[in-house]
Amino acid sequence: MKNEAVKIFQKKKSTILENWMNNQLQDDGLREDLMSNEDLRLQSEELLSSLVDSLTDANIESSGSGDFDTIRDILASISISRAKQGYSPRETGLFVIGLKDALLKTLGTEIKDPETLYKQSMMVNKVMDNFAMHTFETFIKGREEVILRQTDEIADISTPVIRVWDGILALPIIGTLDSSRTQIVMENLLQEIVDSGSSIAILDISGVPAVDSLVAQHLIKTVAATRLMGAECIISGIRPEIAQTVVHLGIDLSQIITKASLASALKTAFNIMQLEVNKKQKLKA
């Protein structure tokens, strides 16, 4: 038995494309700002041709078939690129659902016998739903990639190392310190110590909302690593609440030089380096 739907789709390809395009163009959610109608038509045409070409009598009933790999690839690349361009999941989904509507509409006009129409429609439905699902899946994957990239970027910008004086580095930490962040902080700080040949590093934690035993552990590790490299590490910006929690939690910071403010840490650093800052003597005219 020759499958009706396959035959009709091959014959009516251009009508389907027209219907589908109309569906998309009429939709309120059309994003002309993100993609021109020209590109949209090309994208739609590519997907439809690929679908019609790979749809055969044998595979229309098994939507998981390997024959559809090309279509899946196309759908994946479309939805990933849409995710990155900022399309909403709904807009991306409509793209595929719109094709389903167009296909079903064509079947409705071509097949007269209700029973055949029902059977064929169910089949097409199943295949297209499968594709829609696949589209959603890859769309979410695309968004996850965006999130991962942003996480990396945030981690990078949030740990600047500043050279405050010849031989003195300062690193203001803003936000919560967890182990992956500490690792980045530590790496940046130690590398900068090597690059600048600095012998003192000041770690300012005024921007860290809370210090629990885990954060304290991270700070102690950073100080230990700095010392192994042959530099001294001062921790500044200890707020009263932090001092309180540290003592209440029984954390031992006695091996670390701690200062209340960055200014006093800098003063200590000058002392260690045997530097003195003096007020300029005014010359009498």
């Binding site: 690792q183 530590m186 790496e187 130690l190 590398q191 110590i193 090597v194 040949g197 012998s199 590790k221 230990a224 690593a225 700095t226 010392r227 192994l228 490299m229 042959g230 530099a231």
Partner: peptide, 27 residues
């Protein structure tokens, strides 16, 4: 002990080996 690489220092700390009793310097 002079010139320890950052990656080596981080690893030693994580390993729990802070080299007590050894002085260190950058170069």
């Amino acid at each position: 002990v002079v010139g320890m690489q950052p990656a080596v220092a981080i690893t030693l700390v994580e390993l729990g080996l802070p080299l007590k009793g050894v002085y260190t310097a950058l170069n």
